[in-house]
Design a binder for these strands. Structure first.
Length: 297
DNA sequence: ACCAAACTCTCAGAGCTAGG
DNA sequence: CCTAGCTCTGAGAGTTTGGT
């Protein structure tokens, strides 16, 4: 076998996650041209273009898409091998991890807490809401781990994708949209609940791209509240499908496919590099990953 | 048509390593 | 120690595409 530069795997891992040469370069602390040439070598090695132009942006080829999870796992395994196993220490003082989490990550709270309590009863978890969403808290160690639909800007921060899910429409049983085909016109004809966010969400961008104008007379703080309101009123909510299936299955709502394309929701975990080599933190990240792999469709 | 953004390519220079 | 070969880098120009 011809010898391969295994450092290319790390670059590939970043490229598959960022889908951008510029962003990969920023994350790795390299120049864009260096990453571009690394991509060249990856293309030569794999015999696939991996990332191809789509307008101003790049998109993954089918082969790259298929490689993504495997590459992530290989890089993670290599890092674990080189740094030592991610085992929770049997001795030592009790330890509390502060996890900042949006309600998008709520589905994994119960299985994660059960797993941690069973395997490492000396570890305590303190979940806080995303109200305080500054990256300084991750930097200075006030927050040990962040979970959710993250838009981390700090280049040094470690971000690992946990799972993806699709957006669905939710209405009460017996609602007009619970019968027949939901068209864009019918979708927009009903009042919707919106979510309070700092910037436009992927959903709002998709609505704008499809020129769908909906009436949003009610803004709520999170998806759980949106589902609960939709279950008991004529409001329409658009939420991640797993939240309805895993967290609020008892409400008896009707779920329908959206009549337009929305990029999938991506839930990730993020942490500061200061915790990279911390064996207990690594053990926790691995447990989070395990719980999430059971959620992904 | 013009401008901006993102990626690609070429070039020259620097640093590292192996071999003589 | 010197040299050749390789890799990486930044600079700068070119290409493609989208927005105005």
């Amino acid at each position: 076998m011809q010898s391969m530069d295994l450092n290319l795997l790390v670059t590939l891992d970043h490229l598959l996650r960022e889908v951008s040469v510029t962003e990969t370069a920023r994350r790795m602390g390299l120049s864009a041209s260096a990453v571009s040439r690394a991509l060249d070598r990856l293309r030569e090695t794999t015999g696939d273009p991996l990332l191809v132009r789509a307008g101003r942006r790049l998109v993954l080829t089918a082969r790259a898409e298929a490689m993504r999870e495997r590459v992530e796992q290989v890089v993670e395994d290599a890092q674990t091998t080189l740094r030592g196993g991610a085992e929770v220490p049997a001795e030592g003082p009790a330890r509390t991890f502060v996890i900042r989490s949006s309600d998008l990550a709520a589905a994994l709270t119960a299985p994660l807490a059960a797993k941690i309590h069973a395997d490492a009863p000396r570890i305590r978890l303190c979940f806080i809401s995303e109200g305080d969403s500054d990256e300084e808290a991750l930097r200075d160690g006030r927050i040990h781990l962040e979970l959710g639909d993250l838009e981390i800007k700090a280049p040094e921060m470690r971000v690992r994708r946990l799972f993806r899910d699709r957006w669905v429409g939710v209405v009460r049983k017996g609602h007009p949209l619970s019968k027949g085909n939901v068209t864009k016109r019918r979708f927009a004809a009903h009042a919707h609940v919106g979510l309070r966010r700092a910037g436009p969400s992927a959903l709002e961008r998709a609505l704008r791209a499809h020129r769908i104008e909906r009436d949003v007379p009610l803004i709520l703080p999170n998806h759980h509240a949106a589902i609960a309101v939709a279950a008991q009123s004529d409001f329409v909510a658009v939420v991640p499908e797993y939240l309805v299936e895993h967290v609020m299955p008892t409400l008896g709502v009707h779920i329908f496919r959206l009549p337009f394309e929305v990029p999938p929701l991506v839930v990730s975990q993020a942490w500061h590099p200061r915790f990279d080599a911390d064996p207990t933190h690594r053990w926790l990240r691995t447990r989070v990953q395990e719980v999430c792999s059971s959620l992904e469709r």
